[in-house]
Computed example of a mutant assay.
Amino acid sequence: MQFITQTPGSRALVLDSPHSGVVYPPDFLYTCDMATLRRAEDTHVEKLYDFAPALGVHWIEAHFPRSYLDANRNTNEIDVSLFDSPWPGPVETDPHILSKVRLGKGLIWRTTDDGVPIYERRLSVDEVQLRIAQCWQPYHAAVAQAIDAAHARHGYSIHINCHSMPAIASSHATDFPGEAHADFVVGDRDGSTASAALSGQVCAHLRSLGYDVAYNHPYKGVELVRRYGDPAADRHSIQLEINRKLYMNEQTLALTLGFDSLKLHLRSLVDLLLETDPRRL
């Protein structure tokens, strides 16, 4: 199966969608309800940005679902209770990062956002290592390659890590269960992965379009912006979360009438970023 799509671009802007995959590999062997599992997806995010490659934007998209392997987690964010034998690799010890693992949201998910167990079996070390080799490694290689190419050509890069979020945080999704989310959350890990001026410009543009925008709460950005954002080296990475209520029915996953206008507004944001040189902000 094709695990990722990588479309090279010519501009300084890189977009990636790590959680919109809907191709469920035959070795997944989950036992929870598929409708429940599918609500873990950043459903339709790839459709919201499908105009980008034609503009010369670098595009990377995962086809595997995030519940199979979460490309926005590091390979050491491992829940060792999942395995039928000892995990041979390093395991994260940072208590803040481990809070997500305890919620069942490590590299390999143990539960859905509502706390429903995904498996009725132990996983083998070999099958998880295969998921890392087939999914995580090529996805991260593609993102790194795109950012390197954009930076080499233009002297800077802007990376937008594209996500969606439920209208209300589920019990096992974040550290803030039940919280009503803003229309957008812009995350740069407290200014460590992108310049404050660039993040501020993104927030200001979205607010000018009438949206409620939160900054670094409750999503600051995770592994993909942490790993590739380095504003001091003119490499800027921002995690952008979109509230699903703006464009889809969260129960049926069907697109709603808001999809087209939201897509136009995202196009205006991309157009702005294509004309932005963060070195001059």
Rank of each mutant, 00 (worst) to 15 (best):
A142D: 02
A204D: 15
H154I: 05
P25G: 10
R38L: 13
Q6M: 12
T5L: 11
S192W: 07
E41L: 09
D212N: 13
L253T: 00
T43I: 06
R153V: 10
S199I: 00
A152D: 11
S237A: 15
V23Q: 13
A144T: 03
T111H: 13
D50A: 12
C203G: 07
Y219D: 04
F64T: 07
P138L: 08
E223W: 05
F184Q: 05
A62T: 06
D230G: 03
H172V: 00
Y119C: 03
E61A: 04
P65G: 04
L55C: 08
L257A: 15
Q239R: 02
L123I: 09
G21H: 00
Y49V: 04
V125A: 06
R121H: 10
H96W: 12
D148K: 07
P117D: 05
A180S: 11
K245M: 12
Q134D: 15
A254I: 00
L69S: 06
S170E: 09
C162G: 02
R122Y: 12
H44V: 07
Q201L: 14
D27F: 08
F259S: 04
A142P: 00
L123F: 05
E241P: 07
A152W: 01
L29S: 05
L266Q: 04
L55S: 15
A52H: 04
A146Q: 07
T36S: 15
G191N: 06
N243H: 08
E179I: 08
Q137A: 12
G9A: 04
R121D: 12
Y156T: 03
Q145F: 09
V23D: 13
H19C: 06
N161H: 06
